[in-house]
Amino acid sequence: MEIDGKRVPKDKKEAYSDTWDNVYPITTGEHTLTVTYRMAGHYTQPTKIMFDAKANINYQLDFATDIGTAWFSKNSYVDFWIKDKATEKPVTEVVQTAPPPEPRVISYPIIINN
């Protein structure tokens, strides 16, 4: 969602969930990413992950989750980490986030024609 507090650029038509495979150039040094998981109506709270970017290295944000198999269970989670794409090794600790504590209330209008 954000890199160093700035919203990730996207086309006006696309949702942030459509940007998962975009490449974002960054400078060397410390960076903070604000990330969230969204898939088929499932989502998590935004969380921050920090890392120190080195020159000439390509990084990838990775994740693991049980959301979608245990929706709203006590153990639903998403783990995020950043890895070096060349070595496939993590360069950060795992940061865990979860769905909001309460399900969203969704209401639908009902139209009755006489």
Score class of each variant (00 low, 15 high):
N75D: 13
D11W: 05
P101G: 06
D21F: 03
D52G: 08
A86L: 15
G29S: 09
P103R: 01
H42K: 11
A40L: 13
H31K: 03
E14H: 06
P100H: 02
G41P: 14
A64Q: 13
P46L: 07
F80G: 01
L61P: 08
K13F: 11
Y16P: 07
W71D: 05
T36F: 00
D11R: 07
Q60W: 00
P46S: 04
H42C: 07
G29P: 13
A15E: 07
E93C: 00
V94Y: 01
L61H: 05
A64H: 02
T69G: 08
Y77P: 02
V23H: 13
K13E: 15
F72D: 08
P100Y: 06
N58K: 10
S73L: 13
L33D: 12
K10M: 14
V35I: 09
D84L: 05
P100M: 05
N58G: 10
K89M: 11
F80Y: 02
A40E: 10
E93G: 01
P46Q: 04
E88I: 05
N75R: 09
L33W: 04
P90H: 02
T44H: 00
G5M: 09
A15N: 10
V91N: 01
M50A: 12
V35T: 04
T69R: 09
T87V: 13
F80N: 00
Y77A: 00
W20S: 13
V105E: 12
F72M: 12
V8A: 10
E93R: 00
I26M: 11
E88M: 12
V94F: 00
V23S: 13
A53D: 12
G5F: 02
I106C: 04
Y37S: 06
I49V: 12
D18W: 04
D84C: 08
W81N: 03
D18M: 06
Q60I: 14
K6S: 15
I67C: 03
K6L: 14
H31S: 09
S107A: 08
I49N: 03
E14G: 02
A98Q: 01
K10C: 12
Q60E: 15
V105I: 15
P46G: 07
P101K: 06
V8M: 10
P109M: 08
P25H: 10
G5V: 11
R104V: 10
S76F: 03
E88L: 05
V94E: 02
G29M: 07
R7E: 15
K85S: 14
S107D: 09
L33A: 08
P101A: 03
I67Q: 01
W81V: 07
D21Y: 04
